[in-house]
Design a protein around this nucleic acid. Structure first.
Lengths: 230, 230
DNA sequence: AGCCTAAAGATTGCATGCAAGCATTCTTTG
DNA sequence: CAAAGAATGCTTGCATGCAATCTTTAGGCT
């Protein structure tokens, strides 16, 4: 029944650019130049423009009429706000997962966690980063709320280039796995409060670690505890 | 220092169409026809297309390559998922507001609440709907997390046509005001848990009321308690 | 009457070109 | 020399037109 969708150039370009921004390959502050992108993608400016309009709509680019769209810059305050929201959304995913995950889904989560642990032992940041993303996405997937998963993923993508920065901190991979383990344990034994709290803790560590390794993104003192106390 | 932004046709069209979708003036299932919209806005198809691409990116339209974009249909399950996420985000706004609102902001919230109470006594659904939106936005504004306010607003807009439907229920306006009052009381006396719980309760009533007045959107039995128990 | 096929019509995707707007550079003025 | 204004070049915003794709219609066959 599913109609096979033909992919438009606009969609292909949007996806490629979004991916590049998420991966940090197009840095913040970079202007998205229609002409050079059109040349790069071997198309006219039209689909490039349409793709850029889409990126603007989802916050991946900042519209500047007549002056080109630019990948947004982040202030430390802004990043802290975004991390706090992301933490809450991921905590909600964890909470729902703890309440609702089936046995099969719990097994899948455990496997995603094991893959993380394995790649942490290997010590390769890029591989760990990918298994880390897979792990988090596994939590979204078993929340049994696909809209929540979408919203969480979209917020996650917004700060993705920064999340990766954490792994430049000493022994961060192994610590990340330990934090994940607490989330997994709580989900597997059906403890929603515990799962949510463990995820909040994990995301708080991520935010402060990003500040350690990128001093220009260090949170202000009065934002250190942005996530709600409870 | 803020540069006065010139508004492009694309932006004007996007805003107008988004507003019409949010208000329910463009119903779900409607195809966004480039040619007639171009005629309506007295422009070529180009800015209309760009605006439609943006609407697609934010979920206000569903992309269908070569067959035009369409305002998405909602299933009851989908709507329930979306309401649950919205409830949690609004609850988080309320929680943060209870922790952080300044005296001036509390005053502004009280005023927004009083405006709601006044328009409820008048009994005009359209006016109440607007003051109701203003009230909720006042809560977002005093959360002291502008990113959270943005995300909450964008989710709120996605289900906006349905939220309005609740007010067709008997005496719903006055009940809505009572529910708001509990949120306001908790925020004003600095009770984050109370504020979050009151907002969750309020949003749950909204969801179930929407199902009462729109039988095709009634939640399934096993989704009745989508919002997390805690 | 129902089904299939081909053609016609309608709409979309995108290339191209022109005018408008902005940034940079050059010239003039005090 | 510095500041202001003018000129120039580059990029963006959008109109137009053509090809591709989808939908509808008409005709033929069973």
């Amino acid at each position: 029944m599913a109609r096979q969708q033909k992919q438009t150039a606009t969609e292909r370009i949007r996806a490629t650019l979004a991916d590049a921004i998420v991966r940090g390959e197009i840095a913040q502050g970079v202007t998205l130049d229609e002409a050079s992108l059109a040349e790069k993608f071997a198309v006219s400016r039209t689909p490039v423009r349409e793709a850029i309009r889409q990126l603007e709509a989802i916050g991946f680019a900042e519209a500047r009429p007549h002056r080109g769209a630019v990948v947004p810059n982040f202030t430390p305050e802004r990043l802290t706000e975004m991390f706090a929201v992301m933490a809450e959304l991921e905590a909600l995913c964890a909470r729902f997962a703890a309440e609702r995950a089936t046995d099969d889904e719990k097994r899948a989560l455990r496997e995603a966690h094991d893959a993380c642990a394995h790649s942490a032992r290997q010590g390769d940041i890029d591989v760990y980063y990918q298994t880390n993303l897979d792990f988090h996405e596994a939590v979204y997937a078993i929340s049994h709320n696909s809209f929540l998963a979408e919203v969480t993923l979209s917020v996650r993508n917004r700060v993705s280039p920064f999340r990766k920065a954490q792994f430049r901190s000493f022994n961060r991979l192994m610590k990340s796995v330990e934090e994940h383990a607490r989330v997994v344990d709580a989900i597997l034994c059906g403890d929603p409060d515990g799962a949510a709290a463990a995820m909040i803790d994990h995301m708080n560590v991520v935010r402060s670690t990003v500040g350690e390794v990128s001093p220009t993104l260090r949170p202000l003192d009065d934002q250190a505890a942005e996530t709600a106390e409870r």
